[in-house]
Nucleic acid binder design. Structure first.
Lengths: 355, 355
DNA sequence: CTGCCTGATGACAGCGCTGTCACCGTAGGG
DNA sequence: CCCTACGGTGACAGCGCTGTCATCAGGCAG
């Protein structure tokens, strides 16, 4: 009895019967195709509505070779940036009539399985690679399979993709600190032991370039790697920086997540921000505002939206889109975590140097 | 020439030819089915590997009626909780051989479209509804279509789902504040103007129950709605609370996001936490630790994992799983944002009451 | 030696669509 | 009044699988 009630779902043939036309006509109508008379169209659409007809993608993709789906490959799912990017992607994809398949590949095992079974293949029309470091073999494999690729938040020579100009953004961020009078500027970059997340030295390069332009010699003691998210290595890094002969007066963190933890650590050890130490982040994390963190804001959602457009492009016009790369702007958002460099170190007896 | 290189992808028939067997046998082998001789199995598997064969779900689902996909419906994608839940879900789903289709329905328009075209139907074997307030019509629609539903992070009577016991968790959180000596405890709940996010009065109920158990009359002035994420209404709410004849000494925030902003606002107006005001959040947000926020931690990832198991369940054994509901524990994580209630208000001349 | 059962495999129809082609009626040009 | 053109429609094959049934070679009891 229960089984009876479960409508298996109307088929296109059912709709055709109800509308008194052939299946072909229903198909044409529903696809909004060329030549269907208005009267027929109306009848078909009503019949479809009455039966709550929803087309079976399985059947149509079997014949068209298109699945109407795109796969999204991410190194994890709980990082703010990825969530924001997906949040931009999903509606844009849906608007284009595409469904979004998400694959979160975090462990080596998952990775092997993903590329071995390649579930995306034949089950998606394109693959969006988001901040994921593809090995050359993996990339080759995907190419062999003829899977159109779109790289999101990473720049791959001669490939469709969307990203920001990390070099330029980091350069501008560093210049901002220089303009505030800072001369000793540290740089904290995330260590990625898994090697899954895509990264480049681009931001670090930008930082170094800005220092060089200002005639300041790079000091490797000021560049430190820290575990991206959890763990004690940040404390150690801060300890190193504070115990230098000439400690920094500003720290540029490669990600806002690092900057947040940095703020906490500094508060804990009574280093006032920004009076004694300015902090600049990178990402435009949603929490940056409540934390009053100055940051280089990436348009994360927008990256997702553009990625969706590119996906649509590479599917429908591979020739035109194959190498299209979009660069989005990064904006410096100055907030309370950055301020002028403190004056010269107080000589003995000078007090705090405060007027 | 380029077109030539694009391998359309081997079919099952190709594998069969290469292995010198019939397509049926290949199908049986690849599905790990009953009776295939070891020798044949080996030949088939090798042929499949050599051709990088990946089965076409479109074709197989056309005949089996199963898509091997589950759809996940979320009210948005950039909230921490949803990201964490998805992060738990994705690998668990993949391990069960299911692909994850994500639908982020944020606007009324998207909502109408989703339920109108119901892209999930016939394109997914089950729908996971995550913190999404389905209208009765929407629910009825899904039921009519025979789509198995799993409710995540929300409790629906007689439905498969996984959630936490919000009443009990809020009661415990409130008791914790009571045990610290607080008697005036405010409660901040999120206003959800869109009405998309599922919510219940459960947490508020738990808060009230704990107060009642302690013999404290509820004071409606202490319960305030604030915009969940952005906006100025928090400032107003704090203003109200601080201007009461008897202001609260602790605030229980229904979500960590509210608690974070609360911490910022209080810091801005020089109300020391926890010396003058204790703050307790709810969620177990990843940022709670660096913020040193006490919180009722939900096992967000675990919710996702269990949801995946339930999805597998309702697909393969609907009878057994139809009404299965799993309740996961919430743990109080005490941190630095909560402390003993300050002593009685200092009488004039008493100073700060600090020894 | 016959008959039957069992394990292993192949043949074939058909899932629900789409694309192609054939078809039909009507309008307009010669 | 015939012929073509064309808008509108239907018939039909077939996409790549799976499930069912048929087939066949051995093994073993009778």
């Amino acid at each position: 009895m229960v089984g009876e009630a479960v409508a298996k779902g109307a088929t296109l043939a059912d709709v055709a019967r109800r509308a008194g036309v052939s299946p072909s006509t229903v198909s044409r109508t529903l696809r909004g195709l060329s030549t269907v008379s208005p009267a027929t169209r109306a009848r078909v659409e009503e019949a479809a509505r009455e039966l709550s007809f929803a087309i079976s993608r399985s059947a149509s993709s079997l014949v068209t070779g298109r699945t109407g789906r795109v796969a999204v490959l991410v190194p994890n799912l709980d990082a703010w940036f990825l969530g924001a990017a997906l949040a931009g992607m999903a509606p844009a994809l849906n608007a284009a009539g595409l469904d979004m398949l998400v694959y979160s590949v975090t462990t080596a095992e998952q990775r092997a399985q993903f590329f071995d079974r390649l579930p995306a293949r034949r089950n998606a029309d394109a693959l969006l690679v988001v901040s994921f470091a593809l090995s050359p073999e993996e990339r080759a494999r995907l190419d062999d399979l003829g899977m159109p690729l779109v790289f999101v938040s990473q720049h791959e020579q001669g490939r469709a993709g969307v990203s920001v100009d990390d070099v330029e953004a980091a350069r501008r961020g560093t210049r901002y600190l220089l303009n505030l009078g800072h001369r000793r500027i540290a740089y904290l970059e995330p260590a990625d032991p898994s090697g899954f997340a895509w990264s480049s030295r681009a931001r670090l390069d930008g930082y170094r370039a800005a220092l060089a332009e200002a005639g300041i010699d790079g000091d490797d003691d000021l560049v430190r790697q820290v575990a991206d998210w959890q763990g004690p290595s940040l404390d150690a890094a801060v300890g190193r920086l504070l115990s230098l002969a000439e400690p920094p007066t500003a720290i540029f963190a490669e990600t806002d997540d690092i900057a947040f933890r940095l703020l906490t650590v500094l508060r804990g050890v009574n280093v006032p921000v920004p009076r004694r130490m300015s902090i600049l982040g990178f990402d435009g994390h949603a929490m940056a505002e409540p934390w009053d963190l100055s940051t280089m804001a990436q348009p994360a959602r927008r990256l997702g939206e553009v990625a969706a457009e590119l996906a649509h492009g590479v599917i429908h016009d591979p020739e035109a889109y194959r190498e299209r790369h979009v660069v989005l702007p990064v904006e410096l958002v100055p907030r309370g975590s950055t301020g002028p460099a403190p004056g010269p170190r107080p000589r003995p007896g000078d007090g705090d140097g405060v007027q």
